[in-house]
Amino acid sequence: MMCQQCGEKPATLHFTKIINGQKTEFHLCESCAREKGDILQGANDGFSIHNLLSGLMNLDQSSGSLHNGLYGFSTSKPAPEKLKCDHCGLSFEQFSKMGRFGCDECYQAFRPRLDPILKRVHGNVVHVGKIPKRGGVAMNQRRELEDLRKKLQESIELEQFEVAAELRDRIRELETTMKRPSDAEQA
């Protein structure tokens, strides 16, 4: 949800005002809310883990923007960042200010910039550990399918048609067992 006031940044503050039974809802971004005044009082002094994170994210843009990043707003705009998530509309710039992703697709959209950030936070960039049971099955099948298609291509190029026919059958078989087609495109 985007800020009602500026329409540019994601709304991170949601509040409801009830006066004489009249209910008004506001959805604002932090900077518009601050302009509106008195709302932010008592809301953890503006120094949370997310502010700290956004400081980390801005580090690799320009050395001067660290201070701005820490407090979430920059008056002097850093170099415009073109990365944007098509799914939820969040830009990398907005992400680096909020310190939070908008949706799961953001991870794909911001991939070129993500490794240094994750490295700083976790010291690692690749997941090890639990894999979803049901989702994991599809993932493994998808991986196998890609592998088979690659082999098929190779065998056709090498004119090994018998092998190719076998591979084609296995691909068909696998495709029918996979109920849902793969929806995560590999870039």
């Binding site: 939070r100 992703f101 949706c103 991870y107 950030i117 936070v121 690749v126 997941h127 993932m139």
Partner: peptide, 18 residues
């Protein structure tokens, strides 16, 4: 929301992975 490389995807990058 799960990604082979990043694991379980979360709103805050401090929670991603497990």
């Amino acid at each position: 929301a799960f990604d082979e490389k990043r694991g379980y995807l979360t709103s805050c990058p401090t929670n991603v992975g497990t």
